[in-house]
């Protein structure tokens, strides 16, 4: 199992001060697998995926991404970050750079790509997220949905093997959620390995290979979407589903 895993978390523990935010988390993700993580707020789901590209440091256990173990070794961290793209709830575009510059910056400076090549790449990525006409605007001039799609394009430009999504639609107006989810569905159909923290259950049902439900820092349930939604095992999961599906 672990040999074909591209991401492997074993007995991962983490504390914020005295708060035990991740408790013995174990997760194996295979290549091209699409995982949707859900759970109530404060359950540690964001912290877990932020540990995978070391935006947060885990204190116990091991995390191996594409054969590289995440330790204090800075070179390993850099190598993992080149493999793993991340999309944030708040988009986090660079406001002082145009859309095109946002996308070309990392390829030029981290991958040493020539500028013209990086610009072509940026335009290709913008085509994929369906906003090539916004290339020369600044992030502040775009709608939330457009900004989030630029953020996805920016991550994809580094040609990652794995994409992490940390509540990508939670900061969006309802009518913009679909345009972002559409891009994510395309990406999933293209065979990207994805871990998505989201409350969009419709999206989960369409693309997820596996659902992961977290509560109080633990993984409570892991199941196929079909089983997860129709026949969940734990009472906590049932309660959670009844609450969010009633909305």
């Amino acid at each position: 199992m672990s040999e074909e895993s591209i991401i492997s978390l074993k007995n991962v523990n983490k504390w914020f001060g005295d708060f035990h935010v991740l408790q013995d988390v174990n997760l194996e993700v295979k290549k091209k697998e699409r995982i949707v993580v859900c759970g109530p707020s404060g359950s540690g789901k964001s912290t877990m995926i932020r540990c995978i590209n070391r935006l947060e440091e885990h204190q116990e256990g091991s995390i191996v991404v594409d054969g590289i173990e995440l330790t204090g070794n800075l070179k390993n961290i850099d190598n993992v970050r080149k493999e793993v793209g991340m999309v944030f709830q708040q988009f986090n575009l660079f406001p002082h750079l145009s859309v095109k510059e946002n996308i070309t910056l990392a390829p030029i400076w981290v991958k040493k790509m020539p500028k013209s090549e990086a610009e072509e790449l940026a335009m290709r990525q913008l085509e994929i997220v369906k906003i090539p006409e916004q290339a020369n605007k600044y992030p502040g001039q775009l709608s939330g949905g457009q900004q989030q799609r630029v953020a996805i394009a920016r991550s994809l430009a580094m040609n990652p093997n794995i994409m992490l999504f940390d509540e990508p639609t939670s900061a969006l107006d309802p009518e913009m959620i679909k345009e972002v989810l559409d891009v994510m569905v395309d990406l999933a159909n293209g065979g990207m390995t994805m871990i998505v923290v989201t409350h969009e259950m419709g999206f989960a049902k369409t693309v997820a290979d596996r659902m992961v439900f977290m509560d109080e820092g633990k993984i409570v349930e892991e199941a196929s979407p079909d089983k997860f939604f129709n026949n969940p095992e734990s009472d906590r999961t049932k309660l959670f589903l009844s609450q969010i599906l009633h909305q």
Partner: peptide, 27 residues
């Protein structure tokens, strides 16, 4: 500068100096 700017730069694989020179200091 919001912490998200640091996180976005790091998640793109930028080193400490690149992150500061290209993203943080200009802002």
């Amino acid at each position: 500068i919001p912490p998200g700017q640091y996180e976005a730069a790091k998640s793109l694989g930028m080193s400490y100096w690149r992150m500061n020179l290209l993203i943080i200091l200009p802002q």
